[in-house]
Structure formats: C-alpha cells, structure tokens
Design a protein around this nucleic acid. Sequence first.
DNA 1: ACGCATTTTCCTGATT
DNA 2: AAATCAGGAAAATGCG
Length: 466
Amino acid sequence: MAEALQQAIDDTTLDLGQFLSNFPIPTPTQFAIPQPPEAVFPTPPTTPPNSMSGTWGHIKTEMPSSCAMQNEPSFTELQMAQSNYMSIQNQFNWCSSHPMNWSYTQVRGFLTWAVAEYELPPHEINFEHFRVNGAKLCMMSREEFSLLCPNYGDILYLSIGKVLEEAQYLYDPTPAFCEGPSDTTMSESVRAMHEEMMNMEFIQAPVDDLPMVDLFPDCGGITADDIDVNDKFDDVNVELPSDFPPSPTSTDSYSSMSPGRTSPYSFGSESDCDQTLGNLSFMPRYETSDGDSDHDSCGSSPHGSYSDELHMYDSDKDVKPTMDFSVKNAPINMKIKPGVVPERRARGRPRKVRTVTEEMLTTGKRGRQHSKGNHLWEFVRDLLKNPSTNPKVIKWEDRRDGIFRFVQSEAVANMWGRKKNNPNMTYEKLSRAMRYYYKRHILERVDGKRLVYRFGTEAKGWRENE
DNA sequence: ACGCATTTTCCTGATT
DNA sequence: AAATCAGGAAAATGCG
C-alpha cells in the first residue's frame, strides 16, 4: 500500500530541481515591462462540452506566494474555470487536477481527449512518445510537441495551453498587484505598463505539497512610481519565445490563445524577439483584444499596451494623445518617431479587422451580439438568480422591487466580457449599456446610489415566482 | 443588401 | 482624487 502510494506520488509530482531550472528568475524590471505584441494564434477548435463561454486564452506564470495570499481569485475566473475545466473529465479523470499535477496516466487521458476532440488520426499520435507526467508536458515547447508528433504537435501544444488556461482559474489566486492602484493620475505610459502587469496571468504552483517558487519575493517592488515615464521602454528586454510566429496569418483575435509561449511555463529569449518582431503584423487594439488577458508565461508576449503604441504608429485611428514612448530596443518599425504627436483617436468603436485562418484550430466565434437569452440585462438577471454569484458579485438590495447592486462591478464586467469573448469589457462600458436600458424601461434609475439599478417594467423573469 | 436592435468603445462633463 | 454616472457619437455585429 505504502509503495503504491509512493509510486503514485512519484508519478504525479515533478522533479523540483528540474522544475526550478526551468525558471530563470526575471528581474522585477523584466517582469513589469510591457511585452511586444502577441501574434494572434487560434485556439483549439472547440471548447469542452458544457462550457459556458468561448475561448479565453490565458496561460499563467508562476506568481509570488506573498501575492497569492492577498487576493482570492475573481469569481468570474473561478466560475468559468470550474465550468469549463471540470466538465471535460473523461475516464482518465485527467482534468480533476491541474495539468502540472498530472500523472502519466492523466497525460494519456488528456491525449485521448485531444485526439477525440480535434479528430486527430490516432495512428499519427504515438502515446508512448508522450510518456511524461503533466509537469513535463507543461514544460514542453511547441517544437518538442512537434518533434514527438510531427503532424499534430501544434494542435496538442495548443490544446494543453487551452487546458492550462481553463485550469488556472481553479488554482490561481489573483495576485495582489492585479488590483493595483487606481491610476487615473498615472501617465498613459505608466498606466499602460500597469495594465500590462494587471494582465499578466499567474499560475499558482499547482501541487499542494510542492513548495511555491517565489520568483518575485517582493511583488510590491514594482510600482508606478518606480518607473520613469519617459524611459518606459528604455531597458526593455523584449522577450519572445523562439517559436514566436512570424508574420502571423491567423488573426482572429477573438479566438487567440497563447501563441507566444515556448512552453506554458518557460521563458523566451531576447534574440528570438529580435528575429521575429520585424515580421509581425499588428492589428488594431480592438483586434488584439484577447491579448489583454491572454498572456502566458513571462516569455510570451502580451500585447495590450504595446500594441497600442504600435498602433499609434501605424494608424491614424485608435491613438491616444499625450503618450510618450521610446522603445530603444524595439525594432525600428515599433518606435514612435520623436516629435510626432499622435492624432487624437477617432470617436466611436474602433473598426475591427478580422482574418481567420487555421480554422481547424479555431473555436473561434465571438459571443453573439444579441441572440436570444444573451442580452446584458438577462445576463445580469441570471447572475442574481445564481447563488454562486449572488451575493458575492451582485446582490439584491430590494428583492421585491427588483433593486440590485453590483458588489464587484469589475467582476461582473469581466464575466460579461467573457461571455461575449471580449476581454476588454469594463464596468464603465457595461454600465453604458445598462444606461441604454433606461429608455426602454428594462431598467429604471435608482438615483443617488452607486452601482445600484432596478429592473423596469420591460424586464422579465427576475421575480421570485416568475 | 439593408435596416434595425443591441451592444461596444470612447468621450466630455457632472456628481458622489 | 477616484469612481461612478450621464449621455452623445460612432462603429460593430447579428438578425430578419
């Protein structure tokens, strides 16, 4: 019995030394600086059965334990993750734990699932080649996947990324600084940097008995005040993994996932970046939306703010004034010409440019704009009906009168954005949509109370006996 | 193809 | 001071 247990432990845990060796400890500066834009890469073809939402490419990196304890994961993340991740268990029970925790058997289960899910020809995938535990699988680069499975390594690589993306929500507390300072006083560039940090995703060491790898012992070490606004990128070590796709053709950002990672847990190299950046094509911010929350490891290339800057340079739209960027280390076409004052961005919603390729890998559909049951007010109503969201993120103020309050406004926005495959959703935008409901009497104003709304005569289905 | 409905995005200004 | 509210404007998106 004890032997069997030990065997099981051996099978599920990883070699810590090896694990650590895969984590070159970045300096805070390296960590905080915005990464170059991420080439958009499609997600695997379908979300798991019963999943609540579409794709949402997140791969998290290790987070400081000191941070990990300060904030609980957002409800959105937990709920979605539970829904997606736990719903795809199969006979191997492979998704009952974090991929980093998987035994060889669970890895096999995952492979089995992937073969079925993506309709891969089983004879093309030699499971024996993947005789690794989950930790090792997660460490594998795209090239390694391709080596082990020449024709379908890419898909498997993306697939494990997808699974990690789902798994992260179950295991990952939001780091403290993700809730960082409200920053309307920050310069735009510092704000962008802060947003970049906020958008970094983190994976908590998934093995309970595995010591946390404290990569950033002082997670609060980086603050906006530490950053010289005018030197935002002066010491940027732009890092991209070696497999950073040059000149991506797959640009459906709504279905992008985590293209930049070499492995979900590894870091890229500077030289790689230099080689590839010049070939990248960039999309409008709206297009790159997934990337805001689509970051993977530190070697990846989150593209939120960085692409904004790029965008200033290649478009006369979608630019913000008062931004000052110097990207000494960036390729020439990524730099803002000195003295060029970006024009004010055009009003209205930025035009979207969409190109879809690699459709086989694309789950890719954006949440519908207004299909039945998909309206914002219905979504909000359903959150109120759901005991896992009410009262934690939204709650009744007066159940009978239909008055409710957003407890965690940004969490609700996050969830709404997730439903619509729009990671850029904010409470500000959501609330604008809410205000449109006043005219239609779906909502009524509740004066003097912030974050409080009331269902109107045209809103149905919110009453207890309805 | 077109118009409409429903957002989404951004903005300016006001209020809390 | 920051968050929120208000509502205009314009664009995106899906549906009929």
